[in-house]
Write a protein that binds this DNA or RNA. Structure first.
Length: 571
RNA sequence: CGGGAUGUAGCGCAGCUUGGUAGCGUACCUGUCUUGGGAACAGGUGGUCGCAGGUUCAAAUCCUGUCAUCCCGACCA
């Protein structure tokens, strides 16, 4: 590629809209351009990188025996009504109508469509298992798109769906995908972690997430410091490690706590540790209101609540609902006299003589005790894990790191095949629903997270595998015949060697070219200047280390190849 | 959806308090000169100041509404 004939609109300054590194650098490097909130143009340089990710994904998926197809991005409402998700999916589903007023949606995922395809054509166990995938643009009307490609509304995703005749087969398909995913992220040169995950609204029985570790990640990964357990925050199990204090129960008393609503405010006002306070959150589980109590220094985990009640929706109650449930205003809820059932976290169940809201304006009650003042409907794990908590597998300690979810695999079971009547005949001639799995990779998000993980103050430092160009040939004096002649020879040789070079043939000053090459993150730069050429040499600079070496013109391309080889192995 | 903020040239920003010819840097174009780390000089192109109302002789500036974007939170295969 010739730089002068290509289209890389780099920016010297960061557009004000960008907050995180990958977003800033993608804008500055001329990879993307925003069209609307969460909707981006993929400019040529960005597209090359996205295609690289797609190629790796495609290769690994094919090797794993999956078969590519392409489904429509616009889907009829009927299929979604059939699976029950038309109502369930909520506002994230972009619903549209055609000219005949028929309802459609822009596909956020394709379980319905693939199930429809498979039930139409596969009716015998002899054709199973099968794993079909596509790489396609999705649209999810996110409440708050942010961070550029990291959380866009429109994005490119690889989604695969497996169909098996029985549970054992489905487990094999799942494991097969898990391994394929590891190969994919390794091939992309990313540092990642596989974690236990909640199944969320896609449903199903178990699930793993693939997290790229980066400080700017939106997800928290809980892992154990002494075994291989890791899970996302929603899922990470908090064990009941508490022993109830044998302290004598004190009589309870109401105290006024003016203007103190939050646990921190109450703790500060009463001058007690927040761990001696129990907060009571009113949540709406489907249509029912319940109270959930967690220790003041803990956070309630909505996913755990949702799973405990096997609910479809769990939301924090509105102010009106809180008054309805407690008879008191928001901020002062407590379990005593509550009109709805109260559930306690393990940690609360071990507390004695604790402080709770009194269900009265600006009042809390001290020395409350369950068993005496109120009863729990049940006790379970309802909170987020904290660093230092006991590992649920080995008793080690949890540590917390940030990650970006780039892949998610689910074992779906018969969720869709049952609701959509997708069946086959088994070897006894009996009709059975397919056992399904689904497997997603955020292709555009992989590109963004690669930048989060690989950058410095000068710009992007692409892993060789994802670099839009592998070598940047920089002739310093475009008008110098000797320099240009050598640059062209080197460039052509690199091209023949398949090293995907770009030659910066622009009539720009050295600084401009160096800065752009560094910004867009080309792994290896070959600099051809008059001075070094007089010695029969060129310079090779490695983007990642910044180290420059002088090598003879003869053999400089082989040296570049060797460096690239080494770089891709170190990833 | 709750809270906060911002919309002025491709990008980054000033001007608004106290209404009176729309500015700076960068990018872009032309020329001279320069050429190993974002050169210099000279000249130039480009904006109905987000949009719609209102107040006023006069609105980027004041008022009302609206739209868009961003941040925090809630939510999220």
């Amino acid at each position: 590629m010739r730089y002068s004939r290509f289209f890389i609109p780099t920016l010297r300054e960061v557009p004000a809209e960008a907050e995180v590194v990958s977003h800033k650098l993608m804008l500055r490097a001329g990879m993307i351009k925003k069209l609307a909130s969460g909707v981006y143009n993929y400019l040529p340089l960005g597209l090359i990188v996205i295609r690289k990710v797609e190629d790796i994904v495609r290769r690994c998926m094919n090797e794993a025996g999956a078969i590519e197809l392409l489904m429509p991005s616009v889907q009829p409402a009927e299929l979604w009504k059939e699976s029950g998700r038309w109502n369930y999916y909520g506002k994230e589903l972009l619903r549209i109508k055609d000219r005949h007023d028929r309802e459609f949606c822009y596909g956020p995922t394709h379980e319905e469509v693939i199930t429809d395809v498979v039930r139409s054509f596969i009716s015998s166990y002899k054709n199973l298992p099968i794993n079909l995938y596509q790489i396609q643009t999705k649209f999810r009307d996110e409440v708050r798109p942010r961070f550029g490609l990291m959380r866009g509304r429109e994005f490119v995703m690889k989604d695969a769906y497996s169909f098996d005749m029985d549970d054992a087969g489905a487990n094999i398909s799942y494991e097969n995908m898990r391994q394929a995913y590891c190969r994919i992220f390794e091939a992309c040169g990313l540092k990642y972690k596989v974690v236990d995950a909640d199944t969320g609204s896609i449903g199903g029985s178990f699930s793993h997430e693939f997290m790229v570790l980066a400080d700017t990640g939106e997800d928290f990964v809980i892992s154990c410091d002494s075994c291989d357990y890791s899970a996302n925050l929603e899922k990470a199990v908090c064990v009941d490690e508490y022993t109830k204090s044998a302290d004598e129960l004190k009589p309870s008393e109401d105290v006024e706590t003016p203007r103190a609503k939050t646990v921190e405010e109450v703790a500060a006002f009463l001058n007690v540790p927040s761990a001696s306070i129990a907060k009571t959150m009113i949540v709406r589980v489907d249509e029912k209101l319940v109270g959930i109590m967690v220790r003041g220094d803990h956070e309630m985990n909505m996913a755990k609540v949702k799973n405990y009640f096997s609910a479809t929706t769990v939301e924090l109650a509105s102010h009106e609902e809180i008054e309805e449930a407690t008879g008191g205003p928001m901020g002062f809820s407590g379990p005593v006299g509550m009109k709805v059932p109260v559930y306690g976290d393990f940690a609360v169940a071990a507390m004695v003589n604790y402080c709770v809201g009194a269900n009265l304006k600006e009042t809390h009650t001290l020395n409350v005790n369950h068993g005496r003042d109120f009863e729990f409907a049940d006790v379970d794990d309802f909170r987020n894990a904290n660093p230092g908590d006991k590992c649920c597998q080995c008793g080690g300690k949890y540590v917390i790191t940030k990650g970006i979810e780039v892949g998610h695999i689910f074992k779906l079971g018969t969720k869709y095949s049952a609701s959509m009547n997708a069946t086959f005949l088994d070897n006894e001639g009996k009709r059975q629903p397919f056992i399904m799995g689904c497997y997603g990779i955020g292709v555009t998000r992989v590109a963004a997270s690669a930048i989060e993980q690989n950058h410095d103050e000068k710009g992007i430092v692409w892993p060789v595998q994802l670099a839009p160009f592998k070598v940047c040939v920089v002739p310093l004096a475009v008008k110098d015949e000797e320099v240009m002649k050598n640059a062209e020879v080197i460039y052509n040789t690199l091209n023949r060697m398949g090293l995907e070079p770009i030659i910066d043939d622009r009539d720009e000053r050295a600084g401009v070219k160096f800065n752009d090459a560094e910004l867009i993150g080309i792994p290896v730069r070959i600099t051809i200047g008059k001075k070094t050429l007089e010695k029969g040499c060129v310079e090779i600079t490695v983007r990642k280390t910044g180290i420059t070496e002088e090598v003879p013109v003869e053999g400089c391309t082989e040296r570049a190849a060797a460096i690239l080889q080494e770089l891709s192995q170190n990833c």
